[in-house]
Structures are given as structure tokens and as C-alpha cells.
Design a protein around this nucleic acid. Structure first.
Length: 360
DNA sequence: AAACCCCTCAACCGCCGAATC
DNA sequence: AGATTCGGCGGTTGAGGGGTT
């Protein structure tokens, strides 16, 4: 037996609020606070149920509510937070001062969802809509978005940081596993093994251990790169000796598109190709190698400006080609789908993103 | 000018978990 | 410990406005 809705109570007014009702509610709350919402309507002289009053106040009348169009930055934040939190509108709203969960929910359902869909991105998973390619980088949009929480959630509080740390840890684990899976699946096993073992002394670590998923060495490598990988403000970039360059000019070792994420050159030899314009591919706010650093080190607190950084510019979504098409084209040509395809497409997103911002 | 369609967004609804009795 | 109350959340609805035919 369910309790009857407050809206069912006979005689209580429903529907749009009249200005006089608003005035009564504002006046009462200003003077007394809302107290018990259930008791409020009677005390305030309103013929409404308490729930209706609460909703009207929190979604419309509260003085600190920011009304009007959402900015590009706010849309970015919403997309990023949604990728990590899902339909937790109140949680998302808590990161957008002056915005209500209802407003954000409406924006999502009316605008952002469509934008993502039109761009070939699944608004639920935030992954490119490549149903049949469990590809390495198909998951990266989600992971990058999660990583972006590092910068976005610095101001909000301890519980947010704890959540962030958990999500970041999960993202790291997934990325590492996917790197390994991609490595193993993209080349013949013996070639992979040969390549890895041949390069092992140069890189200074044991690839047998490297190939174990969830191996702590992987995280250690990300946070403390081996010899040959130089520290860089935005991550790690390998210094490559000429003799290490591959003969195949299309295969460029390392220099992964992600600032902060590096791969040993032998992974590049295994078929991970460098995308064009790799240094611009991803936003600088994306830190994989240093994923935990901004969390721990307050120096990395970049303030609200970092809210602007995200993996997708909503405006660019209006113009970018569907992500899925690249994979389909490659399939038509009987070419293997590898990670660089999606990265290249991401490059387009971000290039257009840059173009968009430049033209603003 | 009218009919139709689409979009937006305020408000409703039902459920859930926490607090209180 | 169980029942009840309350506040909050996410999903859904529908009135109204604007655009198109």
C-alpha cells in the first residue's frame, strides 16, 4: 500500500504558480526559513502541498539561482560530469553554482543528449557508437572524462575527492588493462613477445611482468618513467635515439596523443600508430601519467578555469563527423581497426574545437 | 491566418533512504 | 524493531511559445 502523493490531497492547488503565490512563499521563507516543508503552506497561507512549495523554491525562487542560457563551459562540465556520474543530476548540479538539477536535467534531455548522438557518441556510455569494436581507444573518452574530474573537483569537498580518487583509480586500471589487451590482440603473439623481450633491456623493465594486468609495475611506470622518458610539465615524452626509429615511417614510436600518458616504443612497434597532429589531440587538462598528482598536490589545483577543459566542446559537436564512420570506412577497405583511427577522429574533434574557439 | 509541429521547461509523480516516533 | 514521516531525487508530462508549412 503506497502512501498517496501530496498532490492528491483534495483542494490543494496544482499547476503553474501565480505571482501572488510566489510572493507569499518568498516572504514567508525570508522571514522564517522554510522549516518543515509540510507545515509551510498553511503557515505561509498557501493552498499548495509542501512538496510543491519546496520544488518551487529550490528550482525557481531561491535567490542564488542563475537563470538564462548555459555557457559553453557549463555544458562541457555537464558532459564530463555526466560521463562519470550518469544521471545524478543533483550531484552534477552541486558542481555548477546557481544551476538546479532540474535545469541541468532539462538541458541534458533537450540539447546535450542530441548533440552527442548526432556526433556518434552514445550519451549513456559516452563512448563512440561502435557497437562491434571493443577497441582500445573506444573507452578512452570515458576515461579521459573521468580523468578530467581531477581538475573539476578540486574545489568541492572531501567526499568528492574521495569519489574522484576511486574513479581515477578505476580509470587507470582500465586503461592499463586495455593497453595490454590491445597490444596482445593487434599483433601475432610471438611477434609481441619477441618485440617486448628484445627491447626489455633498453627500457629497463620486465615485460613478462608488464603483461600482467593490474600489475603494480604498470602504475609505477606511469608515475615514474624509465630511462629514456623525460619528465615534461604536461606528462612524459620519450627522447628517441635515431637507431630506435622504426623503418616504417607510418609507425611512430611513442609520442602518444595523451599528455601525461606514454607508451614504450615497443608498443608503437606493435601497431599503435601516431595520429596526425598528436600534440594537439587531447586537451591539456587530461592527465593520465599524473592522474593522481593533481589530487594529492595542491599545486595542481587550477581553479575554475579548468572547468573549461574537457574532452569535448559541445559547440564542436555540431560539426564533427560521426566517430563511427572512420571505423566503417576502414572495414570496407579490409583494414584492421586500430586505435589510431579513433585517435585521429578525436584529433578532428579537438582541431575543430580549437578552430571553434579561435573563431569565437 | 490558421493549422500543425517541435521544443522548452516548470511542475508533477512515484520511489527511496534517512530520520523520527 | 517496525511503522511512519519527511525530504530529496530522477523520470515523465504537458502547457505554452515559436517556427514552419
Amino acid at each position: 500500500m503506497g502512501r498517496s502523493s501530496c498532490y492528491d490531497e483534495s483542494g490543494l492547488k496544482k499547476g503553474p504558480w501565480m505571482p501572488e503565490e510566489d510572493e507569499k512563499l518568498i516572504a514567508y521563507i525570508k522571514q522564517n526559513g522554510h522549516g518543515s516543508w509540510r507545515a509551510l503552506p498553511k503557515l505561509a497561507g498557501l493552498n499548495r502541498c509542501g512538496k510543491s512549495c519546496r520544488l518551487r523554491w529550490t528550482n525557481y525562487l531561491k535567490p542564488d539561482i542563475k537563470r538564462g542560457k548555459f555557457s559553453q563551459e557549463e555544458e562541457k562540465v555537464i558532459i564530463n560530469l555526466h560521463s562519470a556520474l550518469g544521471n545524478k543530476w543533483s550531484a552534477i548540479a552541486s558542481h555548477l553554482p546557481g544551476r538546479t538539477d532540474n535545469e541541468i536535467k532539462n538541458l541534458w534531455n533537450t540539447h546535450l543528449k542530441k548533440k552527442l548522438l548526432n556526433s556518434g557518441i552514445d550519451p549513456v556510455t559516452h563512448r563512440p557508437r561502435t557497437d562491434h569494436h571493443p577497441d582500445l581507444f573506444a573507452n578512452l573518452s570515458q576515461l579521459f572524462a573521468v580523468a578530467n574530474l581531477n581538475s573539476m573537483m578540486m574545489k568541492p569537498l572531501d567526499n568528492a575527492l574521495r569519489l574522484q580518487e576511486e574513479v581515477a583509480q578505476l580509470a587507470r586500471n582500465q586503461l592499463l588493462q586495455q593497453l595490454l589487451q590491445a597490444t596482445e590482440s593487434s599483433v601475432p603473439q610471438n611477434l609481441a613477445a619477441d618485440s617486448l623481450s628484445a627491447n626489455a633491456p633498453i627500457l629497463g623493465f620486465n615485460h613478462a611482468e608488464y603483461l600482467q594486468p593490474n600489475n603494480n609495475h604498470l602504475e609505477g611506470l606511469i608515475n615514474n618513467p624509465p630511462e629514456g622518458f623525460q619528465s615534461h610539465p604536461q606528462g612524459y615524452h620519450q627522447s628517441i635515439h635515431p637507431q630506435e626509429l622504426p623503418s616504417n615511417p607510418q609507425v611512430v614510436p611513442n609520442n602518444l596523443p595523451c599528455p601525461g600518458l606514454y607508451l614504450p616504443s615497443n608498443l608503437a612497434n606493435l601497431g599503435i600508430q601516431q595520429p596526425s597532429n598528436h600534440s594537439q589531440i587531447l586537451d591539456n587538462s587530461v592527465y593520465f601519467g599524473g592522474l593522481s598528482s593533481p589530487l594529492i598536490n595542491s599545486e595542481h589545483n587550477m581553479g575554475d578555469n579548468n572547468l573549461i577543459n574537457s574532452y569535448i566542446d559541445p559547440a564542436a559537436l555540431d560539426t564533427i563527423p560521426p566517430l563511427v564512420s572512420a571505423s566503417i570506412e576502414m572495414e570496407k577497405k579490409n583494414m584492421p581497426i586500430n586505435s589510431s583511427i579513433l585517435i585521429d577522429t578525436w584529433g578532428e574533434i579537438n582541431l575543430q574545437d580549437d578552430h571553434h574557439e579561435a573563431s569565437d
